[in-house]
């Protein structure tokens, strides 16, 4: 089995997949804790559907590079969702669900009304949503871009860790005592949108939702402080992503769903440990 693995590791695309998978897992799990606690577990799914809708618009407008428009629209939606926060008329979960369904439906409708050249509509949609094999077709440039962005995301998270905690735990208190809560919410929204758009292109929207919520939820079963939950969530996410990727490569299973399956297994194990610890 290990021989087979080493043989595979000779291929650059396998190494690229491992690097990008681990980095995406790390970044999304760091902000995942905040999102789950702010009751925005579904934002990964919602925003990736928004990104899908934005991408179809870019495709129909025959833009050369779909990225700028997709990023712009997704950041806009993230800001709208996260900044409105607890004071919004339509609350977090409902707002995310509404945006998600609307973007998905309109995107698919637009693709049908204005068919593009590729001709394989169902296949395109499927690969956008489930990521299929895109993680195995990364270029060196994409890998470098992910590395740079991950460094930025992790640095931002460490620098603003205490502010992020304050804003997540109690937004009104932070605002009332002179912390610029709105600015930090904006920062969180923009970073989350960037992570999701990039990760969706690399690993598909199914995987990104799982990467945002599963490690955070698993860590919360066992650990009881924000710091330990964050660290555990990051480590767990990286380990699960690695295990999932290696399994997928060796067994030839779809990458995204294999990682999600490993995350589910980890969640079950952590729930059990949590129950035993509380006895």
């Amino acid at each position: 089995m290990f021989e087979k693995l080493f043989e595979y590791l000779q291929f650059p695309f396998v190494r690229y997949a491992l690097i990008v998978g681990v980095l995406v897992a790390l970044c999304s799990s760091l902000f995942g804790v905040t999102l789950v606690l702010k009751r925005f577990s579904f934002i990964g799914d919602g925003l990736s559907h928004v990104a899908f809708g934005a991408m179809t618009v870019a495709t129909i407008l025959k833009m050369k590079n779909e990225m700028p428009l997709t990023l712009l629209l997704t950041i806009l939606c993230a800001v709208l969702l996260l900044r409105a926060g607890q004071n919004a008329k339509i609350k977090g979960d409902a707002a995310v669900a509404m945006l998600s369904v609307a973007a998905l439906a309109l995107g698919y409708l637009l693709l049908n009304l204005f068919p593009t050249t590729s001709g394989n509509l169902a296949g395109d949609v499927c690969s956008t949503l489930f990521g299929s094999t895109s993680i195995l077709t990364l270029s060196a440039a994409e890998v470098w871009m992910s590395v740079i962005l991950s460094v930025i995301v992790v640095t931002l998270f460490i620098l603003f860790y205490h502010k992020i905690f304050a804003v997540t735990f109690d937004e009104s208190f932070a605002q009332a005592t002179g912390t610029n809560a709105a600015a930090y919410n904006l920062l969180i929204a923009v970073v989350v949108a960037v992570i999701i758009v990039l990760a969706m292109n690399l690993v598909g929207s199914l995987l990104i939702s799982a990467l945002v919520i599963f490690p955070a939820l698993s860590a919360m079963r066992v650990y009881r402080s924000f710091f330990s939950v964050t660290v555990c969530s990051a480590v767990l996410s990286v380990v699960c992503a690695l295990l999932g990727l290696l399994t997928a490569i060796i067994a030839g299973t779809p990458v995204g769903s294999t990682i999600v399956a490993v995350d589910i297994a980890a969640f079950l194990i952590f729930s059990l440990i949590g129950k035993l610890k509380r006895r």
Partner: peptide
């Protein structure tokens, strides 16, 4: 949100110094 928030007493109290 705070009712089931995983945070230690120390973490919450010191967050008051943020400002």
């Amino acid at each position: 949100i705070q009712r089931d928030f995983p945070a230690s007493v120390q973490e919450i109290v010191i967050s008051g110094c943020q400002a």
